[in-house]
């Protein structure tokens, strides 16, 4: 039952409101050495899907999860956790025996990290516009199925901003770009209230 390898996530998928792919990465399962029988319980027991099967799989999963705020389902021998934000949905796929709470936290925190990076406008248009941030963010969270980091603040801290044409050094950007406009303050406020809410919930 237990998965002793570090490979935990089978796939990371972001779909738009029609169920088409914005981001889809299926991680290669642990390579099996034929002599080492103890590996036989790793996620590799699930056959890898061909590209066409992947699309089919996404289509079916989308039907099950879109606009159903149930957070977690079992589908086709996979554990699937998901979270919707505006018109996109982030789906993490893992082995059916994986720790549900762990995978869901990962989904939740990844959404939070993306929210911070995309200035609380996590929707299709922004994702496409800032695809570099999105792909770096996911890469700093899950590398080849291994959970790299689960804390959203740390994930965010690892993703570089695109170079601003006017400023050369990165440090300066962060100092110069403190947004004191109404929108910026509002963003900060909404982030803070969300953060507090979540901390409270975790404390329960």
């Amino acid at each position: 039952m237990s998965n002793v390898s570090l490979k935990t996530v089978t796939a990371t998928i972001i779909l738009d409101s029609n169920g088409s792919r914005l981001y889809a990465k299926y991680y290669t399962p642990e390579a099996q050495t034929s002599t080492n029988a103890s590996n036989s319980n790793s996620p590799s027991a699930i056959p890898t899907l061909s590209p066409l099967q992947q699309l089919e799989f996404e289509k079916n999963v989308f039907k099950k999860v879109f606009k159903q705020n149930q957070d977690i389902i079992l589908y086709d021998n996979h554990l699937i956790t998901y979270k919707q934000s505006n018109d996109i949905i982030l789906i993490l796929v893992a082995s059916i025996h994986e720790n549900e709470s762990m995978i869901y936290s990962l989904t939740n925190n990844l959404i939070e990290a993306l929210n911070i990076l995309l200035d609380n406008t996590l929707d299709e248009a922004t994702i496409l516009e800032k695809y570099d941030l999105v792909s770096l963010c996911i890469d700093e969270t899950i590398d080849d199925g291994i959970i790299l980091e689960i804390d959203p603040a740390i994930i965010v801290s690892r993703v570089t901003n695109p170079r601003n044409a006017n400023n050369a050094a990165v440090g300066e950007i962060s100092l110069n770009k403190i947004d004191l406009s109404e929108k910026g303050l509002f963003n900060a406020l909404s982030f803070a209230s969300k953060k507090i809410g979540e901390r409270l919930q975790q404390g329960l």
């Binding site: 911070i116 603040a153 801290s157």
Partner: peptide, 25 residues
Amino acid sequence: QFQLHEYYGSATTNLPSTSYMYQYH
């Protein structure tokens, strides 16, 4: 660590000093 992104700027007080993820790996 947290200076890279404008969201955190200089407010490092509430941020974790380590996540111990290296233990997991």
